[in-house]
Design a binder for these strands. Structure first.
Lengths: 214, 214
DNA sequence: ATTTGTTTGAAACGGACGTTTCAAACTGCG
DNA sequence: CGCAGTTTGAAACGTCCGTTTCAAACAAAT
């Protein structure tokens, strides 16, 4: 407890984020993680207690960044603006959060990659992710949609519309294996942020209003 | 070559469909498939030549059923009907195809489960699946959307709208791990086929029309 | 400098997997 | 019945995985 063991541990954690994000939990091997971190195979068990504990550490590590992002977005959202404008802001922020890449290679942010891997292959940790990543933004969207529709948030049509919108948000990620293989592949959202956002806003608003007179 | 080896081979194939559909290619084990089929571990290699060859046999086996379904749906689609009506028919048919369960336990048809597994964890076989399952229906949808929008099918807005619609079709499947874990879980589409179809048609038509004057 | 506690490294363990082996059982045919 | 070809079954093989072991290297404190 006297020295700076943080170096190896942090290197290991960073390597684990990269490997888990690209391969998923089961396909990732501790040997590859250790090799990428320049550490010994036993390092994972010594510093974290095992592969599963390392994975949980990764989830907690990326979660604090996501929560900060959500707080930042939440503050920007003006509660007094009209609901339609708030929907636009909501969609724009989510699109930016998901698809804006700070990294040079244009790859998705690792926490979204890991999130997708969990959805595709759910483990016990998905409950934690939904509770902390998904629930609050989803409730927020439901409130906005309910206000546009002028119905209570418990109305089933609100849930339907909210899911249609969340679906459109995550689809480019989920469907990428498909769209990349089609004869007319979809251009990467990362390269068309503004255009994609604009389409989503118009299409979604049009869809919601079409559900209005019920 | 004189006897009916078809019995063991077919039992093995049926078991493989079930196991691959629930676990995916990598997570599925030859031992479990053989155990479910009441066959020896060596049976897979003897009858199919290995796990991967068995998987390809499964894909080809379920593909002939899917192609028959698509032909049946294609015949029903009246080319002379107005585009909006054809969109409604298209959506209704796809929703039924995907979510209507003939099996008693309400589980998704196995070919869709396997398809989803491939999307989540793409292998070389996904190219085959996209080419034969996805490409034609996707082109069909693009034609319908282009007609409603009164623009050529090559217009980018057509692709955007078509993807928004395909996204809504597959979302309940893909997002199920999420929606099941939320405080307001979405009711299973299987139990609300008509309601879900109606929402999708109205929402999508509203969305498309909102993109019209562009 | 010696001791004490912490971190690393090479090697091995135990288990699960796909696959192979080969003898036994079975089938159809003369 | 007896034989040839086909199919099965039990056991083992080789590989890769996560994990454990334990001695060596290291850092800090007396």
């Amino acid at each position: 407890m006297y020295n700076n063991d943080a170096n190896t541990k942090n290197t290991l954690l960073a390597a684990a984020v990269r490997v888990f994000a690209t391969k998923g939990y089961t396909a990732a091997t501790v040997r590859e993680i250790c090799s990428l971190a320049g550490a010994n195979v036993a390092a994972v068990n010594y510093h974290f207690g095992g592969k599963e504990a390392l994975y949980r550490s990764v989830l907690e590590h990326i979660f604090i960044r996501v929560q900060a992002e959500q707080n930042r977005a939440g503050q920007k959202l003006d509660a007094n603006a009209p609901a339609e404008k708030r929907l636009e802001t909501y969609i724009r922020q989510k699109v930016e959060d998901i698809y804006q890449t700070d990294n040079d290679d244009g790859s998705i942010a690792s926490h979204w990659a890991i999130f997708l891997m969990e959805v595709a292959n759910p483990s016990n940790n998905l409950d934690f992710l939904v509770e902390n990543y998904v629930q609050a933004p989803a409730d927020e969207l439901r409130a906005i949609v309910a206000e546009i529709l002028e119905v209570p948030a418990t109305d089933p049509v609100v849930l339907d519309c909210a899911l249609s919108i969340w679906g459109q948000l995550l689809d480019p990620l989920v469907m990428m294996p498909l769209t990349d293989r089609m004869t007319h592949p979809r251009p990467r959202v990362q390269d068309n942020l503004k255009q994609f956002t604009e389409h989503m806003v118009r299409f979604s608003l049009g869809g919601i209003k079409a559900m209005k007179n019920g």
